[in-house]
Protein backbone atom coordinates (compact mmCIF):
# COMPACT_ATOMS: atom_id res chain seq x y z
CA UNK A 1 0.00 0.00 0.00
CA UNK A 2 2.79 2.41 0.89
CA UNK A 3 4.52 1.65 -2.36
CA UNK A 4 1.31 2.13 -4.32
CA UNK A 5 0.62 5.44 -2.62
CA UNK A 6 4.08 6.79 -3.30
CA UNK A 7 3.97 5.53 -6.87
CA UNK A 8 0.68 7.33 -7.39
CA UNK A 9 2.09 10.49 -5.84
CA UNK A 10 5.12 10.32 -8.13
CA UNK A 11 2.86 9.88 -11.14
CA UNK A 12 0.51 12.67 -10.17
CA UNK A 13 3.06 15.14 -8.86
CA UNK A 14 1.24 18.13 -7.43
CA UNK A 15 -1.83 17.03 -9.33
CA UNK A 16 -4.66 15.81 -7.10
CA UNK A 17 -6.70 14.65 -10.03
CA UNK A 18 -6.39 11.00 -10.97
CA UNK A 19 -7.62 9.36 -14.14
CA UNK A 20 -9.39 6.03 -14.19
CA UNK A 21 -6.19 4.68 -15.71
CA UNK A 22 -4.24 5.54 -12.57
CA UNK A 23 -6.89 3.90 -10.40
CA UNK A 24 -6.86 0.54 -12.15
CA UNK A 25 -4.51 -2.38 -11.63
CA UNK A 26 -1.23 -2.89 -13.44
CA UNK A 27 -2.61 -5.76 -15.53
CA UNK A 28 -5.34 -3.59 -17.02
CA UNK A 29 -2.94 -0.71 -17.55
CA UNK A 30 -0.73 -3.07 -19.49
CA UNK A 31 -3.67 -4.28 -21.55
CA UNK A 32 -4.54 -0.71 -22.45
CA UNK A 33 -0.97 0.32 -23.21
CA UNK A 34 -0.40 -2.52 -25.65
CA UNK A 35 -2.25 -1.74 -28.86
CA UNK A 36 -2.23 -5.40 -29.81
CA UNK A 37 -3.96 -6.31 -26.51
CA UNK A 38 -6.32 -3.34 -26.16
CA UNK A 39 -9.66 -4.60 -27.53
CA UNK A 40 -10.71 -1.02 -28.31
CA UNK A 41 -8.14 -1.02 -31.13
CA UNK A 42 -10.36 -3.39 -33.11
CA UNK A 43 -12.99 -0.66 -33.11
CA UNK A 44 -10.37 1.89 -34.16
CA UNK A 45 -9.49 -0.27 -37.19
CA UNK A 46 -13.14 -0.56 -38.18
CA UNK A 47 -13.51 3.18 -37.63
CA UNK A 48 -10.63 3.93 -39.96
CA UNK A 49 -12.29 1.85 -42.68
CA UNK A 50 -15.59 3.67 -42.12
CA UNK A 51 -13.78 7.01 -42.26
CA UNK A 52 -12.63 6.22 -45.78
CA UNK A 53 -15.89 4.72 -46.99
CA UNK A 54 -18.18 6.84 -49.17
CA UNK A 55 -21.70 7.18 -47.81
CA UNK A 56 -25.01 8.94 -48.31
CA UNK A 57 -26.57 10.83 -51.20
CA UNK A 58 -23.40 12.97 -51.43
CA UNK A 59 -21.33 9.84 -51.96
CA UNK A 60 -18.57 11.36 -49.84
CA UNK A 61 -16.32 9.81 -47.26
CA UNK A 62 -15.18 11.65 -44.12
CA UNK A 63 -11.68 11.48 -45.57
CA UNK A 64 -12.80 13.35 -48.68
CA UNK A 65 -13.22 16.53 -46.61
CA UNK A 66 -10.91 15.98 -43.64
CA UNK A 67 -7.25 15.66 -44.49
CA UNK A 68 -5.25 12.92 -42.80
CA UNK A 69 -3.97 14.14 -39.44
CA UNK A 70 -6.40 17.04 -39.28
CA UNK A 71 -8.50 15.41 -36.58
CA UNK A 72 -5.71 15.55 -34.01
CA UNK A 73 -7.02 17.13 -30.79
CA UNK A 74 -10.65 17.19 -31.90
CA UNK A 75 -11.85 14.57 -29.41
CA UNK A 76 -10.07 16.43 -26.61
CA UNK A 77 -12.24 19.53 -26.96
CA UNK A 78 -15.82 18.34 -27.35
CA UNK A 79 -18.63 19.08 -26.37
CA UNK A 80 -18.58 22.31 -28.32
CA UNK A 81 -20.80 24.63 -30.28
CA UNK A 82 -20.62 23.97 -33.96
CA UNK A 83 -22.06 25.72 -36.99
CA UNK A 84 -25.54 24.47 -37.73
CA UNK A 85 -26.42 23.71 -34.13
CA UNK A 86 -27.86 26.15 -31.61
CA UNK A 87 -26.76 23.99 -28.71
CA UNK A 88 -23.46 22.30 -27.97
CA UNK A 89 -22.94 18.80 -29.29
CA UNK A 90 -20.73 15.98 -28.11
CA UNK A 91 -18.34 14.21 -30.45
CA UNK A 92 -20.97 11.64 -31.39
CA UNK A 93 -23.39 14.45 -32.15
CA UNK A 94 -20.76 16.14 -34.30
CA UNK A 95 -20.15 12.95 -36.25
CA UNK A 96 -23.87 12.63 -36.88
CA UNK A 97 -24.13 16.28 -37.96
CA UNK A 98 -21.49 15.65 -40.60
CA UNK A 99 -23.27 12.51 -41.56
CA UNK A 100 -26.67 14.15 -42.08
CA UNK A 101 -25.62 17.53 -43.50
CA UNK A 102 -22.46 16.68 -45.47
CA UNK A 103 -22.86 13.06 -46.46
CA UNK A 104 -26.65 13.30 -46.55
CA UNK A 105 -26.90 9.92 -44.89
CA UNK A 106 -29.09 8.84 -42.00
CA UNK A 107 -27.61 9.50 -38.56
CA UNK A 108 -26.06 6.57 -36.74
CA UNK A 109 -28.09 5.33 -33.80
CA UNK A 110 -26.95 6.05 -30.27
CA UNK A 111 -24.33 3.57 -29.08
CA UNK A 112 -24.31 1.94 -32.53
CA UNK A 113 -21.22 0.06 -33.62
CA UNK A 114 -20.52 2.60 -36.38
CA UNK A 115 -20.66 5.56 -34.03
CA UNK A 116 -18.41 3.84 -31.51
CA UNK A 117 -15.95 2.84 -34.23
CA UNK A 118 -15.72 6.34 -35.64
CA UNK A 119 -15.46 7.97 -32.22
CA UNK A 120 -12.74 5.48 -31.22
CA UNK A 121 -10.85 6.31 -34.41
CA UNK A 122 -11.11 10.02 -33.64
CA UNK A 123 -10.31 9.59 -29.94
CA UNK A 124 -7.08 7.76 -30.76
CA UNK A 125 -5.93 10.86 -32.63
CA UNK A 126 -6.12 12.80 -29.37
CA UNK A 127 -4.33 10.19 -27.29
CA UNK A 128 -1.59 11.82 -25.23
CA UNK A 129 -2.99 15.30 -25.68
CA UNK A 130 -4.38 17.42 -22.84
CA UNK A 131 -8.14 17.80 -22.51
CA UNK A 132 -8.77 21.25 -23.95
CA UNK A 133 -12.36 22.48 -23.64
CA UNK A 134 -13.10 25.45 -25.90
CA UNK A 135 -12.79 28.94 -24.47
CA UNK A 136 -16.38 29.76 -25.39
CA UNK A 137 -18.62 31.81 -23.09
CA UNK A 138 -21.69 30.10 -24.51
CA UNK A 139 -20.51 26.93 -22.75
CA UNK A 140 -20.49 28.57 -19.31
CA UNK A 141 -24.20 28.05 -18.59
CA UNK A 142 -24.02 24.57 -20.09
CA UNK A 143 -21.18 23.62 -17.75
CA UNK A 144 -23.11 25.15 -14.83
CA UNK A 145 -26.09 22.99 -15.71
CA UNK A 146 -23.82 19.97 -15.87
CA UNK A 147 -22.36 20.79 -12.48
CA UNK A 148 -25.83 21.07 -11.03
CA UNK A 149 -26.73 17.67 -12.49
CA UNK A 150 -23.50 16.22 -11.10
CA UNK A 151 -24.14 17.55 -7.61
CA UNK A 152 -27.90 16.99 -7.39
CA UNK A 153 -29.34 14.02 -5.54
CA UNK A 154 -31.43 11.66 -7.62
CA UNK A 155 -33.02 8.26 -7.74
CA UNK A 156 -34.57 6.02 -5.13
CA UNK A 157 -31.17 5.80 -3.42
CA UNK A 158 -31.01 9.60 -3.28
CA UNK A 159 -27.37 9.96 -4.33
CA UNK A 160 -25.49 12.46 -6.47
CA UNK A 161 -22.57 11.79 -8.78
CA UNK A 162 -20.50 14.02 -6.49
CA UNK A 163 -21.33 11.93 -3.41
CA UNK A 164 -19.18 9.16 -4.84
CA UNK A 165 -16.85 10.73 -7.37
CA UNK A 166 -15.96 13.93 -5.47
CA UNK A 167 -16.43 13.00 -1.83
CA UNK A 168 -15.57 9.29 -1.79
CA UNK A 169 -13.27 8.75 -4.77
CA UNK A 170 -10.61 6.15 -4.06
CA UNK A 171 -12.81 4.24 -1.64
CA UNK A 172 -14.31 0.85 -2.30
CA UNK A 173 -17.90 0.63 -3.52
CA UNK A 174 -18.72 -3.03 -3.09
CA UNK A 175 -15.13 -3.92 -3.92
CA UNK A 176 -14.71 -1.53 -6.88
CA UNK A 177 -12.50 1.52 -6.50
CA UNK A 178 -14.51 4.68 -7.10
CA UNK A 179 -12.74 6.77 -9.74
CA UNK A 180 -12.79 10.56 -9.82
CA UNK A 181 -14.85 10.45 -13.01
CA UNK A 182 -12.52 12.24 -15.40
CA UNK A 183 -13.54 11.43 -18.97
CA UNK A 184 -10.01 10.94 -20.32
CA UNK A 185 -10.55 7.61 -22.04
CA UNK A 186 -13.87 7.55 -23.91
CA UNK A 187 -15.01 5.60 -25.73
CA UNK A 188 -13.84 2.90 -23.34
CA UNK A 189 -13.61 -0.85 -23.62
CA UNK A 190 -15.23 -1.74 -20.31
CA UNK A 191 -14.62 -5.29 -19.17
CA UNK A 192 -17.98 -5.30 -17.40
CA UNK A 193 -19.63 -4.59 -20.77
CA UNK A 194 -17.35 -6.82 -22.82
CA UNK A 195 -17.49 -4.15 -25.49
CA UNK A 196 -16.77 -0.53 -26.30
CA UNK A 197 -19.13 2.09 -24.92
CA UNK A 198 -19.59 5.83 -24.74
CA UNK A 199 -19.52 8.19 -21.77
CA UNK A 200 -23.27 8.40 -22.18
CA UNK A 201 -23.58 4.69 -21.57
CA UNK A 202 -21.35 5.02 -18.53
CA UNK A 203 -23.46 7.86 -17.13
CA UNK A 204 -26.59 5.80 -17.69
CA UNK A 205 -25.02 2.92 -15.74
CA UNK A 206 -24.50 5.16 -12.72
CA UNK A 207 -28.03 6.53 -12.97
CA UNK A 208 -29.46 3.03 -13.09
CA UNK A 209 -27.30 2.14 -10.09
CA UNK A 210 -28.82 5.05 -8.17
CA UNK A 211 -32.24 3.81 -9.33
CA UNK A 212 -32.75 7.08 -11.18
CA UNK A 213 -34.56 7.27 -14.51
CA UNK A 214 -31.82 7.70 -17.14
CA UNK A 215 -32.18 10.60 -19.54
CA UNK A 216 -33.14 9.72 -23.11
CA UNK A 217 -30.11 9.06 -25.32
CA UNK A 218 -30.52 12.35 -27.18
CA UNK A 219 -31.09 14.42 -24.03
CA UNK A 220 -29.08 17.66 -23.70
CA UNK A 221 -28.40 16.74 -20.07
CA UNK A 222 -25.67 14.30 -21.14
CA UNK A 223 -23.95 17.00 -23.16
CA UNK A 224 -24.17 19.36 -20.19
CA UNK A 225 -22.69 16.73 -17.87
CA UNK A 226 -19.89 15.98 -20.30
CA UNK A 227 -19.17 19.69 -20.78
CA UNK A 228 -18.83 20.03 -17.01
CA UNK A 229 -16.69 16.91 -16.69
CA UNK A 230 -14.37 17.96 -19.51
CA UNK A 231 -13.88 21.37 -17.92
CA UNK A 232 -13.23 19.64 -14.58
CA UNK A 233 -10.63 17.45 -16.29
CA UNK A 234 -9.09 20.28 -18.33
CA UNK A 235 -5.40 19.66 -18.93
CA UNK A 236 -5.50 15.98 -18.03
CA UNK A 237 -4.05 13.64 -20.60
CA UNK A 238 -6.35 11.80 -22.97
CA UNK A 239 -5.78 8.05 -22.88
CA UNK A 240 -8.56 7.04 -25.24
CA UNK A 241 -9.59 4.56 -26.35
CA UNK A 242 -9.12 3.23 -22.85
CA UNK A 243 -9.69 -0.06 -21.08
CA UNK A 244 -11.61 0.11 -17.82
CA UNK A 245 -12.82 -2.55 -15.37
Amino acid sequence: MVFLASFAAAQGGAEDRRSGYQDMGAALQKMQDDDTANPAMLFVQAGEALWKQKAGASDKACADCHAAGSMKGVAARYPAFTPGSDRPVDLDGRINLCRTTQQKAPAFGPESQELLQLSAYLALQSRGLPIAPPDDARLTPVRAEGEQLFKGRQGQLNLSCADCHDDNAGKSLGGATIPQAHPTGYPIYRLEWQTLGSLKRRLRNCMIGMRAEPFAYDAPEYVALEAYLMQRAKGMTMDAPAVRP
Binding site: R153, Q154, Q156, L157, N158, I208, R211, A212
Partner: peptide
Protein backbone atom coordinates in the same frame (compact mmCIF):
# COMPACT_ATOMS: atom_id res chain seq x y z
CA UNK B 1 -25.75 11.88 4.80
CA UNK B 2 -25.21 9.61 1.80
CA UNK B 3 -27.15 6.86 3.59
CA UNK B 4 -30.18 6.27 1.36
CA UNK B 5 -33.57 6.80 2.98
CA UNK B 6 -34.78 3.22 3.14
CA UNK B 7 -38.31 4.08 4.20
CA UNK B 8 -39.14 7.48 2.79
CA UNK B 9 -40.94 8.50 -0.39
CA UNK B 10 -40.77 12.29 -0.46
CA UNK B 11 -37.94 14.64 -1.47
CA UNK B 12 -36.65 12.21 -4.12
CA UNK B 13 -35.91 13.17 -7.73
CA UNK B 14 -36.00 11.27 -11.04
CA UNK B 15 -36.77 7.96 -9.36
CA UNK B 16 -36.58 5.22 -12.00
CA UNK B 17 -39.73 3.71 -13.36
CA UNK B 18 -40.52 0.63 -11.36
CA UNK B 19 -39.14 2.10 -8.15
CA UNK B 20 -41.45 5.10 -7.91
CA UNK B 21 -43.55 5.38 -4.77
CA UNK B 22 -41.87 2.38 -3.24
Amino acid sequence: TIMPPYYRLDRLHRVARGFEDK
